[in-house]
Design a protein around this nucleic acid. Structure first.
Lengths: 464, 464
DNA sequence: AGATTTGTAACTACACATTTA
DNA sequence: GTAAATGTGTAGTTACAAATC
């Protein structure tokens, strides 16, 4: 067969030669982008190898590399040495989880905002803040990281979880996502690489994509991310940071064991990774006692930022998160905070402070733990075969499913059946695997009876 | 002279040859970065031409280009074809304005947070929100862009300023800086270029630096940025966006005339720039009447995002800004909002909504206008020669000074004399010029008598 | 296990535009 | 006004690393 006989072995994608004009690499990238967004190139399609396309277009193959790079930067495609270049999953769909656009008849088992039943206690705290009569001074511009008494309460809150800092190494942010935004902007550069679990929080994936930061998935087992595989990846490429949710990973519900924490800490220290320890569920897991396990923050303090949000554990409408950081991150983090947010709502911060000081924060956590446990037993009744989470107080479950349909198809069919749940494809960091799961939120259905109804619908769907 | 006799004509910067190892271009960039951050290469220093350095290091000159490019992306240096490559200003100093660290005996004339005297009305609004008894539902996770009635109030507020949008083209953010962060992340890529005034808001400069977005200063006159110079720059290089504060530029107090607006709109449309129209002072300038001039948002709606914050005009502690945007930015902006903030404090949004609905927002604006005008007349008594601002209701003044000392020296001396003001170098986008100014805030001294005392100190300092 | 396929990274070559002397 | 200096943009060459067969 002559080399140029492309007609016999048609390429999976053929650019229009007549549309090619200089500069070739942008011209080619534009065509590729168009065809992907158009839908004519489906997710997962293997693109022609660079050399083959170059031959076809009479160009040097690195010119094709450049065109592919442009599309890669936009997240449209990804490549693996030795395998080829493929159209990314979710190109046209955002995997962002916002909680918007749910039809009223649909039961919410997608969002995990965390049992809204105790907002009454938050409302009470709001009233007592207002009644104290110092709103005037609270509303003045001052203390951009938080008022001293707010920071004192924050420190007390963090101490329960084994995190010990002084008031110049903590700052108040507008929720966990906001701390992550500032951390990624302040401590990383576009193009940097961050290690994560194979499945991780989808809004973190999207945020990294927005900031052109690459995520490197590391496999794990029942004890969390495997330290040896992390070590391997660190040797292979320059990895700058790592994102972990040790107490209860979202979405896999896995808890990192203490011995695994020590192994990971060792690798993190050796390779000088910046660790983002996201512990938004920590207090839920441990209850009100002092945290019986040790946070990574205490194992590698000089390389860790520790995130503690109150959105899920206390109240989702009050946007507060605490960020604890080591001295060497202090300047960069505060610089990032000032230049992205200026400061966080003083009133929201004060409400959470009031809840911590009057003890109701602990009461809410206790009650939410009870609700979570109760919802968990209902779930087990419907899905006894589902591997149990590391803690019974987890707000969601990670349910393995057998399925051949596209993930968005599954989500859509379930929504039409009356429930919203999210498919594992939303949380996957790189290449879709054969195993599939659903993340089932137990906390947002509105009531136990609605939850039960939703679980029944889910069970019925999966069995047919 | 032999070509390689570098000793006779020493280069302005010589990398250490023994530290050069492959890959050369990163090695070189690292050395350059180190020497700039170190202080051994001062701002404005001309670096050796690429070819000369290549000759010295026995490399192809485009390898030097690549090293320079790395540093350029970080904002450390900038280059102009034909002229050379230079070290950027402000590399080592953060020019962020935070309002922190002011000694209590010092009079604040640096920060412009905007007359805190009427926080009482905001406190009252807070109380009425609380008394309405729907805090519970307000605290539920829902309506991430804002509750419908909050958006309705926002739309009403924007209509005063000549901005007309429906509720799906507006979203509530946590302050103006937060809208800018989301806009820069969502609508631009690292390396993109944004046109600004020669002097502009320093926190915007820092934010752009953080996100690796380059600012291109465009000169202006009494009517604002010159459209012909903008056109020129757009022809010369790919400019992606433009940032303007038309009603009252910070810090120069210049207002863009209507005819200039039309000229700028034409250029913006022709070169498809994304316009960020920052109008945080608009309602202050125009009072409560309908905005008599036309916002750029109405001249190039399809390319504009319009920012309206209440931090300065209503209350700095309640963190709310409205962002209005065209349909073609909708998806990207909301995606950015969800993935950086998730959502804004519902309570803060509700308080501002209450202020708009009960009319006290207008009352606060009216009273702040009176205060600003009064402070302005005091200022004129001390500095009659200072060019008047475009509007008497401006919260700050732009005072030309004759000075030979370094700008940070001036700020420090004034702080020791008992006042804080900011030097024009903090606001300058690229090359320091010979003209120098001080931005004098009139709104944060605490009282008119303190302001007067501060102005007296300033006058005395400048006369000696 | 070794050869092949395929993507990535670093450096080189060259044409061109702008500034300055 | 022209030539030299100088940065920018596009494309090509080579070496290498990872995955696959």
């Amino acid at each position: 067969m002559p080399i140029n006989s492309f007609d016999n072995f048609p390429m999976s994608w053929k650019p229009n030669k007549s549309l090619m004009k200089q500069p070739y690499f942008t011209s080619l990238a534009d065509q590729l982008e168009h065809d992907i967004k158009n839908g004519s190139l489906a997710s997962g399609t293997k693109l022609p190898p660079q050399r083959e396309l170059a031959d076809y277009l009479d160009l040097n193959f690195t010119t094709i590399t450049r065109a592919y790079n442009l599309c890669k930067k936009k997240g449209l495609i990804y490549g693996t040495t030795g395998r080829g270049t493929f159209v990314s999953p979710h190109v046209n769909e955002s995997i962002t989880i916002t909680g918007a656009d749910l039809s009223p008849s649909c039961i919410e088992m997608g969002m995990v905002s965390g049992f809204e039943q105790y907002n009454e206690l938050v409302a009470q705290a709001t009233i007592s803040v207002v009644e104290k009569g110092y709103l005037n001074s609270l509303y003045e511009y001052s203390y951009p990281t938080g008022h001293p008494h707010q920071l004192a309460a924050a420190i007390r809150w963090l101490e329960q979880m084994g995190v010990h800092v002084d008031s110049s190494h903590i700052a108040i942010f507008s929720g966990a996502q906001n701390t992550l935004t500032v951390a990624l902007i302040s401590l990383f550069e576009p193009g940097d690489k961050i290690a994560t679990d194979e499945y991780t929080y989808s809004n973190f994936v999207e945020l990294a994509k927005l900031l052109n930061i690459q995520l490197v998935p590391i496999s794990g087992d029942q004890n969390g991310m495997r330290a040896d595989l992390l070590e391997l990846q660190c040797k292979q490429k320059k990895i700058n940071g790592i994102y972990l949710m040790p107490s209860c990973a979202n979405p896999t519900t896995i808890k990192i064991s203490l011995s695994r924490k020590r192994e990971l800490a060792e690798v993190i220290r050796r390779h000088k990774l910046i660790l983002m320890e996201d512990e938004i569920f920590a207090c839920m897991i441990t209850g009100l006692k002092k945290y019986e396990t040790i946070p990574l923050f205490s194992l590698v303090p000089e390389q860790t930022i520790y995130i503690s949000s109150t959105s899920k554990t206390l109240c989702s409408g009050v946007r507060i998160a605490y960020l604890a950081f080591a001295e060497n991150f202090r300047e960069k983090i505060l610089h990032g905070l000032f230049n992205t947010n200026i400061k966080t709502s003083s009133l929201d911060a004060e409400i959470i402070t009031e809840l911590i000081l009057n003890g109701n924060a602990y009461a809410i956590v206790k009650k939410k733990r009870e609700l979570a446990a109760k919802a968990g037993t209902i779930f087990e009744r419907y899905f006894p075969e589902c591997p149990p989470p590391a803690t019974p107080y987890c707000f969601y479950r990670w349910l393995p499913i057998l399925n051949t349909k596209p993930s968005f198809h599954v989500e859509k069919e379930l929504e039409q059946s009356g429930i919203r749940v999210y498919h594992s494809d939303r949380f996957i960091v790189r290449n879709p695997t054969d195993k599939q799961f659903l993340r089932v939120s137990l906390s947002d259905a509105g009531s136990m009876s609605k939850l039960e109804k939703g679980l029944a619908i889910l069970k019925e769907y999966l069995e047919t």
